[in-house]
């Protein structure tokens, strides 16, 4: 049986952007919104995934990437309007095989444990204020998403 157990050579590895969330839950769709906006703008060799949830098989793509940037919506703190950028480390906390529970840290852990490596990773968290049914972003999340696109591009240019 052939399985991918080791990372690809660095020279062939690309950056990976994963924007995830539920596009039928208003601001929760900010991650996919950013991912779609980035698709036509990212440098060659960058892979962009637009996803409803984090799924375990993403660990395979993560292990093969040189670096990965997750983009997700979060509950805004009072008066918060700008996206937060933070470094991520592999963390076996949430169940990475359960898409309802998985999080970036646990996926990185899965990539490292089963598929040979976890690359440098960042989370770009977009503050949201409206998570009810709806396909539109709130003004707060829309502005933060525009900023997040710039932030992701800056990360891709820097790293």
């Amino acid at each position: 049986m052939t399985t991918t157990t080791g990372p690809e050579p660095v020279a062939q590895r690309c950056a990976l952007v994963i924007g995830y969330g539920n596009t039928l839950r208003s601001d929760d769709g900010a991650g996919p919104f950013v991912a779609r906006a980035l698709e036509a703008r990212v440098p060659a060799g960058t892979r962009v995934l637009d996803a409803h949830q984090l799924t375990p098989e993403m660990a395979i793509a993560i292990s093969a990437a040189a670096r990965v940037i997750f983009v997700d919506a979060v509950d805004a703190a009072p008066h918060e309007s700008a996206p937060r950028v933070s470094r991520l480390e592999p963390q076996p906390g949430a169940d990475p095989l359960n898409p309802h529970a998985s999080d970036p840290g646990s996926l990185l852990w899965l990539a490292k444990t089963l598929f040979g490596g976890a690359p440098e990773a960042w989370l770009v968290a977009i503050p949201g204020v409206e998570f009810g049914f709806g396909e539109e972003l709130s003004p707060v999340a829309a502005r933060a998403s525009a900023d997040a696109i710039v932030q992701v591009e800056a990360l891709l240019a820097r790293i």
């Binding site: 399985t3 375990p56 076996p92 169940d95 089963l114």
Partner: peptide, 25 residues
């Protein structure tokens, strides 16, 4: 007795399972 225990006990099986699910997806 969960996925972390499974991965620790038999990583090859866990890996194969993820890749098989990936194939279906």
């Amino acid at each position: 007795r969960n996925v972390f225990g499974l991965i620790a006990k038999d990583p090859e099986l866990a890996r194969a399972g993820i890749r098989l699910r990936q194939f279906g997806q």
